[in-house]
């Protein structure tokens, strides 16, 4: 990283830490959402951007993480700090099962992507029939109070969730930066570019792909726990939906797959875009259902067509920092 990049990163960090003291509550909720997608996109990026394994079913890890921690709290009053470990353990287990089956049976590319969708959809419908977790009617976590910070149960005002997400995003960025420079980063990128050549260089590709799945699913499970305690209601239809998986990957794809800042930039651009469209439409009085998503889709289309490598690589060149 060059000096200019370090300075920019420091400035961005300072801005984000100071934000809650200048921004209103609406802006804070938007910022929290951006950080949520930045973090989750970073997690997906480990699997696809680094190791080249296209997952279109990451909602399974969010959902399982959210339901694991949510159920412990709902049924037994066990707080999220313990639930987190169950969430991670279950998500990683599912990731390893999918990974083992796919990689051992030589499933890759489009087929792997479809396998991940199939597992997510299978789980969604399965959760619809699990009455213990509320079924299609949903599971609702008790919202006791919102004014004081109760860290043990992760209950508190919006600012607490904002800082939690900021800390997670920063940690994810640091972890990914370290991973990319480590042995794993080199091996993953080799596998992404050409798996056969990677294997000929002594890389046990199965094991390293499994490591990517492990890290990615563990990180995503944490998003799920956050989701459960931030929104306090969980519906299988909502959380496991393929639409959620797509939301996760939009940020990194628009920002730049395989880059460190792409997921963050992409999440910011897309969330602000979506918000901007909503407000513009409201200002014009065009509040017809669907029209917002049409515009969003058109912008997405344009971004993919004209910036196939994402916004970050183009921007990084312009402001003169490393990709």
């Amino acid at each position: 990283m060059n000096r200019r990049a370090a300075a920019l990163l420091l400035a961005l960090g300072a801005l984000l830490v100071a934000l809650p003291h200048v921004a209103g509550s609406y802006a804070l909720s938007v910022a929290t959402l951006i950080l949520y997608f930045a973090y989750t996109g970073q997690a997906w990026n480990v699997m696809m951007g680094f190791a080249g394994q296209l997952s279109l079913g990451h909602s399974i890890y969010v959902g399982v993480g959210a339901y694991a921690a949510g159920a412990l709290f709902f049924h037994y009053g066990i707080g999220p700090w313990a639930g987190l470990w169950l969430a991670i353990a279950l998500s990683v287990l599912i990731g390893l099962v999918i990974g083992f089956l796919a990689f051992r049976f030589g499933i890759s590319g489009v087929y792997f992507a479809l396998l991940t969708i199939a597992f997510a959809e299978f789980t969604r419908i399965g959760f619809d029939h699990l009455d213990w977790l509320g079924g299609p009617g949903g599971m609702f976590l008790k919202v006791a109070q919102r004014d004081q910070i109760d860290l043990a149960n992760f209950r508190g005002p919006p600012i607490m969730y904002y800082y939690a997400m900021l800390a997670l995003s920063a940690a994810a960025l640091a972890l990914c930066a370290w991973l990319l420079r480590s042995r794993a980063g080199y091996y993953w990128r080799a596998i992404r570019e050409d798996e056969e050549a990677a294997q000929a260089l002594g890389i046990n590709t199965f094991r390293w792909k499994m490591l990517a799945v492990t890290i990615s699913s563990a990180m995503t499970a944490i998003s799920g726990v956050f989701f459960a305690f931030y929104y306090n209601n969980l519906f299988p239809e909502q959380i496991f939906n393929i639409g959620r998986s797509i939301e996760i990957i939009l940020g990194p794809v628009i920002g730049g797959v395989g880059t460190l800042f792409g997921p963050i930039l992409g999440a910011a651009v897309l969330t602000l875009l979506s918000d901007g469209i909503t407000e513009a439409l409201a200002a014009f009085g065009w509040e017809i259902p669907g029209i917002k998503q049409v515009l969003y889709g058109l912008v997405l289309l344009a971004a993919i067509m004209f910036m196939p490598h994402g916004i970050w690589p183009a921007l990084a060149r312009r402001i003169g920092v490393d990709r």
């Binding site: 080799a190 992404r192 050409d194 050549a197």
Partner: peptide, 19 residues
């Protein structure tokens, strides 16, 4: 030939050297 197309020349060889 099967170069790791997106990686630099040095990174390509580093992958081998890591072995």
């Amino acid at each position: 030939v099967k170069p790791f197309a997106g990686l630099s020349v040095l990174d390509n060889v580093t992958v081998g050297a890591l072995h």
